[in-house]
């Protein structure tokens, strides 16, 4: 399946945010779900199971100056294999001049899957970002399929973060004591903006909020956890503590 979705948010001139484009194709269906405190919120409603092997999905997000867009998904994504096997790719691109809060539910690497999520975020001067990525190493009791995430976050003049994570049989070192060890879930939350802390905060023995090196107001929490709920707790702790979101 090949699908594209596009959401464009602009300031409405009265302190709020107007969605000028909300376009999607199954299984990427964005739905307006609310306006509050100047922000417009969109949920991606899964119009089909997946991503499945062979899927090529693209999501484009644009946030204009002064606009505030919140993007969520209604449920976890289950990356699943196809027969015959084929890779699936989800490309998320975002151009942000206002504030983007991207908080999708986790991606579960179902046994046998071959999925790649590629995220590229371009931030204008003064743009703010919350960007969450979570992965789960298979459904209950199963080994993970191949799942990799590659993330690039660029500021106006220079790159702020490059971060890749891979699990599954093609990356047999994923459960090394240096990488995820025995964790069943892992994730990151990137914070760009004045609320990003300038000093490390140790959240748990396997989670830390760390200021990034190439931008004065950027930080990332990296965490591993025994399961998805405890991972969420670690990452949400960071959001609550530092942004009040």
């Amino acid at each position: 399946m090949r699908a594209e979705a596009r959401v464009v948010a602009e300031a409405d001139g009265r302190g709020g945010t107007r969605l000028t484009t909300v376009h999607g194709e199954p299984p990427l269906l964005p739905r307006r779900t609310g306006h509050r405190a100047g922000a417009a919120e969109v949920h991606l409603v899964g119009g089909a199971a997946g991503p499945l092997g062979g899927d090529t999905l693209s999501l484009h997000l644009e946030v204009g100056p002064g606009a505030h867009l919140v993007v969520r998904t209604v449920a976890a994504s289950l990356a699943q294999p196809s027969n015959p096997p084929a890779p699936s790719v989800l490309t998320v691109t975002a151009t942000v001049h206002g504030r983007l809060v991207y908080l999708p539910e986790p991606t579960v690497a179902v046994d046998g899957c071959d999925h790649h999520t590629m995220s590229i975020v371009d931030l204008g001067d003064g743009a703010e970002l919350l960007w969450r990525e979570e992965l789960v190493t298979g459904r209950h009791g199963e080994p993970p399929g191949d799942l990799c995430t590659t993330t690039t976050i660029r500021g106006a003049a220079r790159t702020i973060l490059r971060h890749d994570l891979a699990i599954g049989p093609r990356t047999p070192t994923w459960n090394s004591p240096a990488v995820l060890h025995d964790a069943r879930a892992a994730g990151t939350l990137v914070i760009v903006g004045p609320q990003a802390p300038a000093r490390t905060v140790l959240m748990s023995p396997t989670a830390a909020l760390m200021p990034l090196g190439n931008h004065p107001n950027a930080a990332m929490i990296s965490a591993t956890a025994p399961d998805a709920p405890s991972l969420r707790k670690a990452l949400d702790g960071a959001i609550g503590y530092h942004t009040g979101t």
């Binding site: 971060h163 890749d164 994570l165 891979a166 090394s176 004591p177 240096a178 990488v179 995820l180 060890h181 892992a186 990151t188 023995p205 396997t206 989670a207 830390a208 760390m210 990296s222 965490a223 591993t224």
Partner: peptide, 8 residues
Amino acid sequence: GSAILLDV
């Protein structure tokens, strides 16, 4: 390629 636990 990141090693999350090395960082933490």
